[in-house]
Design a binder for these strands. Structure first.
Length: 445
RNA sequence: GCCGCUAUCGUCCAGGGGACUAGGACGCCGCCCUCUCACGGCGGAAACCCGGGUUCGAAUCCCGGUAGCGGUACCA
């Protein structure tokens, strides 16, 4: 694969959402897979909506995802002088003209002419700058995913490429910046497909060879509607807060809109770099289904070493000394956020709010079993897994009870709920004195 | 309205003229394992949007319809 120069060009009008994260990932995979370069450009020409906080947040999200760029970030507004230069040239050689026509004027014009003729302004000495679209012919977008798409010039309006105050607009700045950065492949969301002919016309006016394009299908919420805050973890920040691992998010996002001929589901990032092929990206919009991400994250969590898991858990919860609890919880959690609800009782004491569990297991029989357990555990000399298990099984045998009639009361005594890691492991981690004290309390309560 | 893109299980992806009795994964259901919840194992239900055409043969190619989405900004 020849070295590619790709770019990720988010606009800092909000947090980086998963659609943007996927675009960044695909670009990054293409760059890494080809020995190429990924450029990060911040499309901040909308001064009203762009904020430095959003830029920081996007950078932070990219860093967390492990998708850092090779060049940039470069601010689009910082390039305004260059935009002015190209603008002057286009004005001088007649590729563009000034016009005071407003959006309202265009609308009226369109209402009259329908699809017969796109809006063509009359050159004036002031106003916004519009690009001349040829009267006939067509512009063809060569798209790696969708093939060729033809746009007839008669359907296109002369696009405004700079405001009345002279500042560049997106469809112009993006073409100039991509051309100057020698971008070879523009990979971005499908919402840009209809704008591509305008950008292509800017390349023509500049006399520059355009890059290849690949327009990614859009990402939708679980309900098939456009992704928004009400869809839960729709931004990278929210994914992080929900306790997902970057590697799992990369794997999941890679498969949301792409798959190759084998049916592998768990694919490491290295493998992704090797296998990803933008031409195989799906054409249909995909829904973001957090259930599958949860499952996948659980798989990644279980592949972590105990050291890694402990470090991640401690960073996530802000607590220390989690190693032993991490070990006994790993088969039971799917996200880092699942850990504390499952294991918090080890450190903070039994949950107090599960009346149902107490009612069901701390019955007279349950408390009698706890009294026996307390005696059996008091008698053992070493607080290790084997001794604990032997002691508890002894109680089961002597009471001629079913295992759960002994174990569940112990679980509720320790955790306050009916769900916890394995009971022997839990006793072991909670420790002898604390375990005995909780059992005594529950037995007499 | 106009321009454009898209259409395979509930979801994501594979299959792109005969190998399709349509494959894998998540989810769901059942069974096994089992001290709870999980993990793991085994099994199951579950889809080619509709209508024409081309062809000996269509999920696959073509046309139309429908639906969804995008664009149609002095937003990006």
């Amino acid at each position: 694969m020849p070295a590619m120069r790709v770019r990720f060009a988010p606009s800092p009008t909000g947090a980086l959402h998963i659609g943007g994260a996927r675009a960044a990932l695909y670009n990054w995979l293409m760059a890494r897979g080809s020995g190429g370069t990924m450029v990060l450009r911040i499309e901040d020409t909308d001064r009203e909506r762009s904020t430095p906080e959003n830029v920081e947040q996007i950078l932070d999200a990219l860093r967390w995802l492990g998708l850092e760029a090779d060049e940039g970030p470069i601010s689009q507004v910082a390039r305004s002088e260059r935009h002015q230069e190209v603008l002057r040239r286009l004005l001088d050689d007649g590729h563009a003209y000034r016009s005071t026509a407003t959006g309202e004027d265009v609308k009226v014009y369109k209402a009259q002419h329908g699809a017969d003729r796109g809006f063509r302004g009359t050159p004036e000495n002031e106003g916004a700058v519009r690009l001349h679209v040829p009267g006939d012919g067509a512009t063809v977008v060569h798209d790696l995913i969708r093939g060729d798409t033809t746009f007839q010039h008669v359907h296109l309006d002369d696009p405004v490429i700079a405001r009345g105050d002279g500042t560049a607009l997106y469809n112009f700045a993006v073409a100039v910046d991509d051309a100057d950065a020698a971008i070879t492949h523009v990979v971005r969301g499908e919402d840009h497909l209809s704008n591509t002919p305008k950008q292509l016309l800017v390349y023509v006016a500049m006399g520059v060879q355009p890059p290849l394009f690949a327009h990614l299908p859009l990402l939708l919420g679980p309900d098939g509607k456009k992704l928004s805050k009400r869809h839960g973890a729709a931004s990278v920040q929210e994914l992080r807060d929900a306790g997902y691992l970057p590697a799992a998010v990369r794997n999941y996002l890679a498969l949301l809109g792409w798959g190759d001929s084998d049916d592998e589901t768990l694919i490491s990032t290295d493998e992704l770099v090797r296998r990803f092929d933008v031409a195989r990206v799906s054409k249909n919009p995909a829904r973001f289904d957090e259930q599958k991400l949860r499952w996948m994250n659980g798989r990644y969590l279980r592949e972590l070493s105990l050291d890694e898991l402990t470090a991640d858990l401690e960073a996530f919860t802000g607590r220390e000394g989690l190693r032993a609890a991490a070990e006994i919880s790993r088969e039971k959690i799917q996200t880092l956020a699942d850990f504390w609800p499952l294991c918090g009782f080890i450190f903070d004491g039994p949950a107090q709010d599960d009346e149902k569990a107490r009612g069901k297991w701390l019955t007279d029989a349950g408390r009698a079993a706890l009294t026996d357990v307390h005696a059996a555990l008091t008698a053992i000399t070493a607080w290790d897994l084997a001794s604990i298990e032997t002691a508890l099984q002894g109680v089961v045998a002597s009471r001629e009870a079913k295992p759960k009639d002994v174990f569940q009361p112990v679980r509720v005594a320790l955790a306050g709920t009916a769900v916890s890691p394995g009971i022997f492991e839990t006793l072991h981690v909670v420790g002898r004195d604390e375990s005995l004290s909780r059992i005594r309390a529950a037995a007499s309560g």
